[in-house]
Nucleic acid binder design. Structure first.
Lengths: 194, 194
DNA sequence: GAAATTCATTCACATAGGTTAAGAAAGAAA
DNA sequence: TTTCTTTCTTAACCTATGTGAATGAATTTC
């Protein structure tokens, strides 16, 4: 039970957890379920949870100054999702999170997060690494956007996540790639011709 | 002395520091100077410092899979710069850091960082917020790249940092904006015509 | 099951930015 | 100074992506 979560954590902190420590950490997590197309976090509201996804699929969206929404992250099984900025700063969220499928997750609240930090020093490290990885990933996405064209980025995305084609509507993939749905349609058409 | 640094930290953690705590923290920082055009950190090497810039100007560059370099950050007075990934993970750096001007900085090593964390719990918070801000900033940069054209991004950049025009060569500004130097030149030409 | 949405495709045309190449300007070095 | 090197500008042409509009398919709603 919860072996995936345990491995997910141990991989990040690069250390095995004792059974008691892991059990203690689990006690701070609460199972939650959301039906498909649920808004889990609305921008401007307060983000009081970090979610570990056991089953299902969610997206996070950032709304820019012009009011346009951009897909920031796809989070499926064994991923973490939240508005870490709002969660840690206790300020209104800048991100919206929605389910694309029925979802089962484990939620840690800010209060439990603080408790866990006190009792389990390893978890401070774990969450710092979580932010750090998100940051590195974000930087590399910028570099990739500057270097590769949309066709290459699309190929890479579906190569690493072939199931997205079944699970994610194309206009959201287009948004994640930074292009319009029509352009993605044209790219797919060109790919098939070659 | 070091009032800017103190304010920089207090602003982030949103708490005043006692004189003794700040003095203790300062004792973990070592002053360093670099002449213009010095490579402070080379990609593939180990990043053992985080720098607080007292005077001067540096850039960090990310090299992508095609070997192209992209300016990730301009760091001038009162900014922090490092390869946080390499610093925390103790793996080879993915970022290069160079001075554009003669620079005076305060450096904290990984060893001193660990000591400071033990003696000064506030600083764990400070560095987590440092990463967190870098992450949020990076995400917003992606959204901006997808929404605004290069001319708008250039205007915004020089509007918030008018001194860049004097201090930073245009080809580095172009790299930061994700365009070629010739394109920036054309954009500037069009701006003057209007 | 019909009506209403939402989503994907296609096309013609517009535009931002890339590419190549040449020369001017500005700095650094001698 | 003169030379050498780096940076910036300009221009002609090319390509990727955006825009708007039409159409059909798929999904949702009633």
């Amino acid at each position: 039970m919860h072996q995936n979560l345990r491995q997910n954590i141990e991989r990040k902190i690069n250390t095995a957890l004792s059974d008691t420590d892991f059990a203690l950490f689990l006690s701070f997590l609460e199972p939650v379920t959301f039906p498909k197309k649920t808004i889990v976090l609305e921008a401007e509201h307060f983000c009081s949870n970090i979610y570990y996804i056991e089953k299902g699929l969610l997206i996070s969206l950032l709304t820019d100054e012009k009011g346009e929404k951009h897909v920031v992250q796809f989070a499926f099984e064994d991923h973490w999702i939240s508005d870490l900025y709002s969660f840690f700063s206790q300020k209104p969220a800048i991100i919206t999170i929605e389910t694309l499928e029925d979802t089962m997750a484990l939620a840690i609240t800010k209060e439990n997060f603080e408790l866990a930090m006190q009792k389990l020093p390893q978890f401070e490290r774990f969450f710092r690494i979580l932010i750090q990885n998100a940051y590195i990933h974000s930087q590399q996405r910028i570099a990739k956007t500057f270097t590769d064209d949309a066709e290459q980025r699309y190929k890479d995305l579906i190569c690493t996540n072939p199931n997205f084609l079944q699970r994610v509507p194309q206009y959201l993939i287009a948004s994640f790639l930074g292009i319009k749905p029509q352009s993605l349609s044209r790219i797919r058409q060109n790919m098939h011709k070659k």
